[in-house]
């Protein structure tokens, strides 16, 4: 479904990683690990189609995403360090906006998405009044509000409590069971069942057996 071939990334003239290769089938999860500055975020941004790799290709169903970046981004969820929430909106408004922006046609899912992350009681609360962990839960809720096959999560477990992480892990497993793929950059706080591990920093490559 999602594959990378000989991927290299250059930032500020410095080669961050090279020869990254992997191949994910529906239901697979890629866990990207590595020390700070080894390019985990850069890799996820490349996979989201935000930029072009310095070398190599990213393939979706065998087709280079560079041929249709817009189409690729429209099937991708990207959750970065900045969570894309507006402090002045309420929890419900933030999620309803993101759901409409990202193309949720039926308007039902947002409440269920909020409920999954335990935010249903906070829907009317202004987002600026949330704690860091609650903000993160709200950011994660959009993954459920809009179904998209590719999830790219950059440190999704940051600021989450144990229950929040459990909810996230449950959402990830459900997404995989439905045939989606997920790539997570993490320092190990989020557990994923039989993942494919890609370690950046030592120029390693891995592929599905």
């Amino acid at each position: 479904m999602l594959a990378a071939r000989d991927l290299a990334c250059r930032r500020g003239g410095r080669l961050i990683f090279a020869d990254v290769a992997f191949s994910l089938a529906p239901g697979d999860a890629l866990v990207v690990v590595g020390a700070n500055g080894t390019g985990k975020t850069s890799l996820l941004r490349l996979l989201a189609g935000f930029g072009r790799p310095a070398a190599g290709q990213i393939l979706w169903d065998g087709e280079d995403i560079a041929l249709d970046f817009a189409g690729h981004r429209a099937r991708t969820h990207f959750l970065g360090f900045a969570d894309g929430l507006k402090a002045l909106l309420t929890v419900g408004e933030n999620l309803a906006f993101l759901a409409a922006l990202l193309g949720n046609r039926d308007r039902a899912p947002p409440p269920a998405a909020l409920a999954h992350f335990g935010l249903d009681a906070l829907a009317q609360r202004p987002t600026r009044a949330l704690s860091a962990g609650q903000r993160r839960r709200l950011a994660l809720a959009r993954l459920l509000a809009v179904p998209r096959p590719l999830w790219l999560l950059d440190e999704p477990g940051v600021a989450l409590d144990r229950e929040g992480r459990a909810r996230l892990e449950e959402a990830i497993e459900r997404h995989r069971a439905q045939g989606g793929v997920v790539a997570i950059a993490t320092h190990g706080d989020v557990a994923v069942r039989d993942p494919l591990v890609l370690e950046l920093g030592d120029r390693s490559a891995c592929a599905l057996p």
Binding site: A48, A82, K86, L98, L102
Partner: peptide, 8 residues
């Protein structure tokens, strides 16, 4: 705040 990425 990351909203721009969501627009994209």
């Amino acid at each position: 705040d990351g909203s721009l990425e969501q627009l994209l």
